[in-house]
Design a protein around this nucleic acid. Structure first.
Lengths: 253, 253
DNA sequence: AGTCATCGTGTACAAAGTACACAATTGTAA
DNA sequence: TTACAATTGTGTACTTTGTACACGATGACT
């Protein structure tokens, strides 16, 4: 929660720079140790967590705005971003509207108005991210998908919609390049799919299907050092991968 | 194009009632005589056509806004609507910005600002629509998909994106209830799919596949009066149809 | 009654998806 | 050093789905 002083200052800056009534919220997925993670933020003195988000500069394309917002949070500058839906309930930011209402008159108060939020989801390489809280947040950290705290406003809905959109994407586009490290084993990739889909897949059939996409290269040497049989290492063939991204897989019709 | 007088009046009203910086554009699909149609508008004294659209009332959910806008254009009040993307290029409404810039100072001029547009596509029963121009448009009519005029602003892009989204929907949701009349023959439904997909389908395989969805009821009596063998009539089983809409078809994974 | 376009239906083959088992490798514990 | 447990790589039979294709039936028109 902002102090009155902060609110005044922020409102002033925001009204000068940002497009009114529009915000962006990002659901940032990462993958580490066989666990799907989401980047969440927490403000001082507030219980609820929230999604990293921000506003759109007056002359900024919205995709650029999302990229900028995530750069500030993660330090990454090449991010896979996908717009997936607008959240436009007039009461969706009621919590903030009420919270700051009495501090500052409506006309000067940036948070008193209605905000539509454009939802983006992002897929990022966990190990490359250095989460950074912004000036008003206490924490910015990864949270396990199966250990999510309560979320502010409609961020729970936004998060769930993002997960649905991601699952849908799985059906007609490859996923993984943005989430996996450069080299990985087939079981590791399978784990990613299983986490996203929240169900077990058959090891052999998974491998065949993934390989049939023709977007993987297998390294000559298997990885050593594990406690079991050494698995082969794979990496994405970037050219074929991006091609599959734009072309899309089979359709159905 | 609006006169200065109209512009002043409209701007005044708009600033009072609508959310700034946000607009809605609708791609309305209809189907008639084996042709896919889109509802388009044309202004007086302008060459370019445009999509029916409008703005969001200050306290109105965005889906309601889209519904309201389409009610005014079509007279329909139960419309299948699907939000599919936001168009947020800062220059997307440059044409209008420039057009009205000199008439009225920026601060009073509703059309001088930047607008993000939320794209919706709609599927409607052609025969139930009575297209109505609004106060500023000369025409509001159906146009064949393969005889589209030039479109204003980025409406060409919006239209194409809608078509893509519709094609995608075909892969995991049933389509037709909102586009076909109550009773229809299998070849008629096939024509709809062929038009959307822009390719020929095999008659027999199409029938089997559609029937396998289990969302159709066949009438006892075939339709009489045609010049050939009387085809059976089908209708959608609304319960199973809506169920399939929410459940979705097979997934892939 | 014959012709023609269209409609309904079934069958054989190919491709994709699913279920399932065995042998090889590696570190660890006996 | 050897047996063991866990994990990896690979192949085969079966089922389901998708595709290609042909025939007989119907109804208006002549």
């Amino acid at each position: 929660m902002l102090s009155k002083q902060q609110l005044i200052q922020y409102s002033d800056e925001a009204r000068k720079n940002y497009l009114d009534h529009v915000s962006i919220d990002c659901v940032v997925f990462g993958f580490h140790n066989g666990q799907m993670k989401v980047l969440l933020m927490k403000a001082y003195e507030e219980e609820q967590w929230y999604l990293p988000g921000g506003f759109v500069l007056k002359q900024e394309p919205i995709d650029d705005a999302a990229t900028r917002i995530l750069q500030e949070r993660t330090g990454l500058n090449k991010i896979f971003l996908q717009q997936f839906r607008v959240f436009g309930d007039p009461d969706r930011s009621k919590f903030h509207n009420d919270l700051y209402m009495e501090m500052l008159p409506v006309q000067e108060n940036w948070f008193s108005g209605r905000f539509l939020s454009i939802g983006y989801y992002a897929l990022v390489d966990f190990s490359g991210v250095a989460p950074q809280p912004d000036e008003f947040s206490e924490l910015c950290t990864w949270r396990d998908l199966d250990d999510m705290p309560g979320l502010q406003l409609d961020h729970e809905l936004i998060f769930k919609s993002a997960l649905d959109a991601l699952r849908l994407q799985l059906n007609y586009q490859p996923i993984g390049y943005n989430l996996m490290p450069k080299d990985f084993t087939m079981p590791e990739l399978q784990k990613l799919y299983e986490t996203i889909l929240d169900k077990k897949l058959d090891r052999r059939n998974f491998q065949r299907r993934i390989l049939a996409f023709g977007i993987l290269n297998r390294a000559d040497k298997p990885r050593k050092g594990g406690a079991h049989k050494a698995p082969y290492l794979y990496s994405f063939d970037l050219e074929k991968y991006t091609n599959a991204l734009t072309e899309g897989f089979k359709g159905g019709w």
